[in-house]
Amino acid sequence: KNAAKIVNEALNQGITLFVSDNKLKYKTNRDSIPSELLEEWKQHKQELIDFLTQLES
C-alpha cells in the first residue's frame, strides 16, 4: 500500500493524519483506532511523514 491510499482509508474512517514536529499524528472523533490501522501506520511511518509533509508544503 502506498501513503496516499493509507491516508485516504484513514479519512474514510473519520481519521485525519498529519505531521507535527516531524512526528505522525492523528485527529479523530472516534473512541478508538483499530489496531490494524495503527500497525499499518507504524509500518509505513516514514513514507506517511514524507507524503504528508510534501502535501503541506
Rank of each mutant, 00 (worst) to 15 (best):
E47P: 04
L55F: 12
N29Q: 10
K25R: 13
Q43C: 06
E9C: 05
N8I: 13
V19K: 02
L52H: 00
P34L: 03
V7M: 04
K45D: 11
N8C: 15
N29W: 08
D31Q: 12
I49E: 03
K42T: 12
K27L: 09
V19P: 02
K23C: 12
I49V: 07
E36A: 10
K27R: 13
T28C: 06
N2S: 15
L24R: 00
N12H: 12
N8E: 15
K5A: 15
T28P: 10
E56L: 12
E39W: 08
L17F: 04
E36R: 08
K45G: 08
K27S: 10
K27A: 10
L55S: 12
A10L: 03
N8T: 13
K23E: 15
R30V: 06
A4N: 06
N2E: 10
L55M: 14
E39S: 07
N29S: 13
Q54I: 10
I49C: 04
Y26M: 05
R30C: 08
A3E: 03
S57D: 15
E47Y: 04
E39L: 09
E47T: 06
F51T: 02
T16R: 09
K23F: 07
I33R: 01
I33C: 02
T16K: 10
K45V: 15
L17Y: 01
N22H: 10
N22T: 06
G14F: 04
L38N: 04
F18D: 02
N22Q: 07
N29M: 11
G14E: 04
E36V: 09
D21K: 06
E56C: 10
N12V: 13
K1N: 11
E40L: 14
L24P: 01
T53L: 13
L52W: 01
R30N: 10
A10S: 04
N2Y: 09
K27E: 09
L17K: 01
A10H: 01
T53A: 06
L55C: 10
K23H: 08
W41A: 02
K42M: 15
L38W: 07
E40W: 05
D31N: 11
K1G: 11
Q54V: 08
F18M: 06
D21F: 05
D50C: 07
N8R: 15
V7W: 09
S20M: 09
S20F: 10
Q46R: 09
I6V: 04
Q43W: 07
H44Q: 05
F51S: 01
V7I: 13
Q43F: 08
N2H: 12
L11V: 06
N8P: 01
N2P: 13
K45F: 14
E56G: 15
R30H: 07
N12F: 09
H44W: 11
